[in-house]
Design a protein around this nucleic acid. Structure first.
Length: 585
RNA sequence: GCGCCCGUAGCUCAAUCGGAUAGAGCAUCGGCCUUCUAAGCCGAGGGUUAGAGGUUCGAUUCCUCUCGGGCGUACCA
């Protein structure tokens, strides 16, 4: 159950009864203990609208409020309504939460939602810049599925275009020289750099590269075979990274740029038939008034180049058409770099006039900032400064291994390696997910791989502390506990809340659903991160101030229930972020 | 030039359709391990929310201007 929503409804009814209908109650979780558990801020606005005195409206409102769940309702300041929930209500709700299959999270009316994320360029190896789209998009996919939506993961990988000319020419050259292609392709980044260098410095090579582009496009068999070999190899690299990072993208989720090749002329024809195309300097463009470029001139959205080739707007249009018409998507979410903002605005605008998007279909760009170097300059893939994603993962795991060895030397080697993996990968992903800002950010190993404070390891650690309690509880009460399964650990016992730390923690657990629903409002994973961090923090305080195993029987059992629910929410929450938990660390 | 994004503690970031005394982490300083894992807990200091105006009972949030930063601005993606 969503307490906030429930209060919204109740207060809206009371506002109407008090003579102020159709006003938002504006219920929020209170920021300070003195202001209760929830506060309703809507009275001031409602009073203004109906020209009433806010305090008077508030007085009238609380006499009309039917809130059995509240222990106390107060008016404060100019007209805030502070609601203190009763301990018994919180305890009852927590008991119910334990029976709920999704920890209180409500099933939504299922929608078809396409999520466009990760989308690496297969010419190069995945680098640090792909981390944001990949982790945020994956979290969105997991959360929406958890809510019951029908999610289609769309990995729109770049597998076509001019840069493949030099790659194919270079592959050919290596084969001619009798070298092993497979060994050369082990490091795609070096391979790409080498091909680019040749293209830049060797005129003959450059000419061959251009020829290869033409041959590839015309379907030359040998060329196609080389290309296929390269693409397969590159996808293997990507999938290895996804698996390492615990990303849910599978090979079947790849819908490559080249898959739309046959649709490109069709898209242009359809736009032409509708009279939207203007030929400008030999290129086929759509001119839309709202896009102005230099000198205030209207900016073209080019769908076919003067040489007959198709720019990426064309394949993106084909993808919109496919997602909208074939997949019948209710929503499409594009987790793409903020620099593509103009491109995506044009994309959706052109798709709109082409009739590819209906009014009930929401296609949105969810932008994020780019990664900078320590000096504030952007990372550029061409100057070789790109940090490989695979290297970041390795470094994180190495650091986590050193840390776990130092903190917990008694663990077996096997366990230490498992902990290092889960903690290292979790830290990287959490570092990305916990920031929402569209601002660019500076890449720094120490920040990204920090294991202290507001990081994934903090949350994972809270989880292991709970698991540790249950391991001990299990040995104390042999037979009543299953190892590794605490969810029905203490059947039939009741939750009692007396200590401040217990009440705060219990309430926070009830607010899981509010966090999830706030995330899907605007697809900001950091809201869930903040929630889990606060939850873990409240658990840590509870852990310090409320002894569990040494408490009197009834208290002990109640606290075990609270701890177990915390473990469940932490695990589920982290799982929705794509972060694993372990039993010990 | 035009357009978009951004500016919050020394650093990295929060602040839920505008809400009460702007919160965390790192770093600094001071406490807490014969009791469930100290990757932790408790506490202290640190702010003219870039600046100026405006709207409002109330502005980090909305509007205008200025300053500063980033990105984009037709045949690369």
């Amino acid at each position: 159950m969503n307490i906030k929503q429930q209060l919204e409804t109740t207060i809206a009814i009371a506002l109407e009864a008090a003579g102020a209908p159709d006003c938002p109650p504006v219920v929020k979780q209170s920021q300070k203990p003195g202001f209760g558990h929830y506060q309703a801020n809507g009275v001031m606005g409602a009073a203004k609208r109906y020209q009433m005195k806010p305090r008077q409206l508030a007085e009238k409102l609380i006499t009309l409020l039917n809130l059995p769940q509240a222990a106390k309702v107060e008016i404060a300041g100019p007209g805030f309504i502070n609601i203190h929930l009763s301990n018994s209500f919180i305890a009852d709700q927590l008991t119910k939460l334990r029976d709920h299959p999704k920890l209180g999270v409500k099933q939504q009316i299922p929608q078809k939602i396409v999520i466009d994320y990760s989308a690496p360029n297969l010419a190069k190896e995945m680098h640090i810049g792909h981390l944001r789209s990949t982790t945020i998009g994956d979290a969105a996919a997991r959360i929406l599925e958890f809510q019951g939506h029908d999610v289609t993961r769309a990995n729109h990988v770049g597998d076509w275009g001019a840069q493949f000319g030099s790659l194919l020419a270079y592959m050919d050259q290596i084969e001619q020289a009798g070298q092993q292609l497979s060994t050369e392709l082990k490091d795609l980044e070096i391979f790409y750099q080498a091909a680019s260098q040749l293209f830049k410095n060797d005129a003959d090579f450059a000419q061959r590269a251009r020829n290869y582009v033409v041959k590839l496009q015309s379907g030359d068999p040998r060329c196609k075979a080389l290309w296929q070999l390269f693409i397969t190899e590159s996808i293997n690299h990507c999938q290895a990274v996804y698996e390492r990072l615990n990303i849910t993208l599978k090979r079947a989720d790849i819908k490559a740029e080249s898959d739309y090749n046959d649709d490109l002329p069709v898209v242009v024809q359809e736009l032409e038939a509708q009279g939207h195309i203007t030929v400008s300097d030999g290129a086929k463009c759509v001119f839309l008034d709202q896009f102005k470029g230099k000198d205030g001139k209207v900016l073209p959205a080019m769908v076919q180049k003067s040489d007959g080739g198709f720019p990426y707007l064309a394949s993106d249009l084909a993808a919109v058409r496919y997602r909208s018409q074939r997949l019948a998507a209710d929503q499409a979410l594009y987790f793409v770099d903020a620099r593509q903002q103009l491109h995506l605005s044009q994309l959706f605008a052109v798709a709109g006039i082409a009739g590819y998007l209906q009014d009930n279909q929401s296609f949105r760009h969810l932008p994020f900032g780019v990664i900078l170097k320590q000096d504030g300059k952007p990372f550029k893939t061409r100057d070789g400064a790109a940090v490989k994603l695979a290297d970041v993962i390795e470094e994180a795991i190495t650091r986590a291994y050193q840390l776990v060895t130092e903190k917990n030397p008694d663990l077996t080697e096997d366990k230490k390696h498992k902990v290092a993996e889960v903690v290292g990968v979790g830290a990287i992903k959490y570092a990305e997910l916990s920031k929402n800002r569209a601002t660019d950010y500076i890449f720094d190993w120490d920040t990204m791989l920090s294991f202290e404070g507001n990081t994934a390891p903090y949350l994972q650690y809270a989880y292991t502390r709970i698991k540790s309690i249950f391991r001990r509880a299990g040995s104390l009460r042999a037979g009543s506990l299953q190892q590794g399964d605490t969810s029905d650990a203490i059947p039939g016992e009741k939750i009692h809340l007396t200590e401040d730390a217990e009440i705060k923690l219990a309430l926070k657990l009830l607010q899981f659903v509010e966090a999830i629903e706030a995330v899907t409002d605007d697809y900001q994973a950091n809201i869930l991160c903040n929630y889990l961090y606060e939850l873990a923090g409240l658990f840590m305080s509870f852990y310090e101030s409320c002894p569990i195993l040494n408490a009197p029987q009834a208290t002990k059992e109640s606290r075990l229930l609270i701890a177990d629910t915390t473990a469940q929410v932490l695990k589920q929450g982290l799982n929705l972020l794509g972060i694993e938990t372990i039993e010990q660390m």
